[in-house]
């Protein structure tokens, strides 16, 4: 890069906001960032309007970090706009990369979700049972709100993504490292994931041994041995099938990995791979016994696709077409 300051944008689509917080978590490093970059768009921190972005020239932003999945027409519109305005677009966080926890919504139809949110929860007070519509009439005026989509999408379903930095949220160090790399102009091939190619097991210090499980347990059912692999102790750990980078944060505190950094390099369906690996730890030559043990994993789809349903081969639950 020349001595010109980097023009940075950050945006929050369908997500929890954690990724934005993770950016703030880089702490004093933000000062270094300020030295080399100007932030031109960051709705969570500063007041910007849509028209400000629309007014930018195409490719005006050097880098844009976009977090959150695509859940409604607004997400999509802004994503497309930012794509046009950015030289490099980074999908930040697992929602933007793979759909994230938000993507679990793909187990339900939009109607089911709206029904629940606006009618069925205990705290809902909606006597007329109104469900917001993209276009409605209020006091004689037409009111437009974004349209909720049928499903949750990942960012690259709609726009080209240059780099992926998954994590729920990505660790602050990883974000800082990514910014460093951008500043130094040392980015890998476009399309890459800005993380090591290995998996969580590689970073996890626990001792792996048996690889044979005769009872699957839920985390609350035992206090796991701190030294031994959690999977060997019967906990469903997604570590084997999850991209490294977190430093085995969960297993370090005695909790199994839930897969938030997404699939390993080149893997098409993280959930299927994880499931296959976990299932075979219960192999025995007694089919009935095996069935019993494996059925102890109660919610396989929810477990193995917790962070990546929209990125999976089927993308979500298959719904019968309405006649």
């Amino acid at each position: 890069m020349s001595d010109k300051k980097l023009k940075l944008g950050l945006y929050w689509a369908a997500g929890c906001g954690g990724c934005d917080v993770a950016v703030l978590d880089i702490d004093e490093k933000i000062l270094d960032v300020a030295e080399v970059a100007d932030i031109h768009f960051w709705p969570i921190a500063m007041d910007f309007k849509y028209k400000d972005v629309a007014a930018m020239d195409d490719g005006f932003l050097d880098v844009c970090f976009l977090n959150g999945a695509i859940r409604n027409s607004e997400n999509k519109e802004v994503a497309e706009l930012l794509r046009a305005k950015s030289k490099v677009l980074v999908a930040l966080g697992t929602c933007a990369c793979y759909g994230g926890v938000i993507g679990l919504a793909n187990f339900c139809t939009r109607e089911e979700i709206l029904e629940t949110a606006f009618k069925k929860t205990v705290s809902t007070d909606n006597p007329e049972g109104i469900i917001p519509q993209p276009v409605s009439e209020v006091d004689g005026c037409e009111l437009h709100i974004p349209e909720v989509y049928e499903a949750v999408y990942k960012l690259d379903d709609f726009v080209n993504v240059d780099y992926y930095l998954p994590g729920c949220p990505p660790r602050a160090e990883l974000i800082a490292k990514a910014i460093d790399a951008i500043v130094a102009g040392q980015l890998p091939e476009p399309g890459s994931v800005l993380l090591p190619a290995k998996t969580v097991c590689d970073e996890c210090k626990r001792e792996k041994k048996d690889r044979h499980v005769d009872e699957f347990k839920r985390p609350w059912e035992l206090i796991p041995d701190e030294e031994k692999c959690l999977l060997d102790q019967g906990l469903v750990c997604m570590g084997p099938a999850t991209r490294a980078g977190c430093g085995a944060a969960c297993t370090n505190v005695n909790m199994p990995c839930r897969g938030c950094y997404g699939p390993a390099e080149g893997v098409i369906d993280q959930g299927a791979k994880a499931m296959s690996a976990v299932a075979v730890t219960a192999v025995s030559t007694n089919l009935a016994e095996m069935e019993k043990v494996i059925s102890q994993v109660k919610d396989p789809a929810g477990t193995f696709y917790m962070y990546g349903l929209p990125n999976s081969l089927l993308r979500g639950r298959q719904m019968k077409e309405a006649k």
């Binding site: 190619a197 290995k198 998996t199 969580v200 097991c201 590689d202 792996k208 690889r211 044979h212 570590g239 084997p240 490294a244 390993a264 390099e265 080149g266 690996a277 075979v280 730890t281 192999v283």
Partner: peptide
């Protein structure tokens, strides 16, 4: 080796004990 995370799931699966674990390279 660049991709293998050393999870050791495969080791028990092989009926011919063809897979071993390299402690050094993990």
């Amino acid at each position: 080796e660049d991709k293998c995370g050393g999870c050791m799931i495969c080791i028990n699966l092989c009926p011919y004990t063809a897979i071993s674990y390299d402690e050094e390279k993990k």
